[in-house]
Amino acid sequence: MPLSDASLGAAATAPTVPPVRVEVPSLGIDISIAAESVDDTGALALPENPDVASWYRWGPSPWNPEGATVIASHVDSLEYGLGQFARLPDATAGTRISVTAADGRVADFEVQHVDLAEKDGIDWGQVFDREGPARLVLITCGGEFDYDTGHYRSNVIVTAVPVPAA
């Protein structure tokens, strides 16, 4: 049976290192990141400006040993126009992505697959999975637009895996 010191502060685990910037050089994406929680509807909160991406702060970051780091950004906005993540569907297997932390450390990933999935059918527990292999998930919107609700019907989901250190 494992034993641990129960005194206040003794069990504090290393805090998750927030990412502050994500780059996809081959697609010309270079975007800053804000740490976000959920909005009033329980969906991931995103900054209004599509030039600032949202990292789900309660999930892993690239420097955690396991789980999915989720970073999302608006594909477009009535106020700001097209966002940088509008170029995500052009990613292909092997496309390089790098994520930077505030202290300058960089984690490199390469794209495994790019999916366009209808929002109703997405398993969000899988997308935001905090366990399993370390991976990076970039999300934006795409596909058909519902002109009645003002929302896209699908998400573009890019899944990338860590590039082994050279």
Binding site: V38, D39, T41, G42, A43, L44, L46, Y56, W58, A72, S73, H74, V75, D76, S77, L78, G81, L82, G83, F85, A86, K119, I122, W124, G125, V127, F128, R130, I139, T140, C141, G142, G143, E144, F145, Y147, G150, H151, Y152, N155
Partner: peptide, 20 residues
């Protein structure tokens, strides 16, 4: 004991819609 966000509403203008 966590649960997950229920969606990612990441677009509102239809600029890249496939049904424009």
């Amino acid at each position: 004991l966590h649960s997950n966000p229920g969606g990612v509403p990441a677009g509102s203008a239809g600029l890249v819609a496939t049904n424009q």
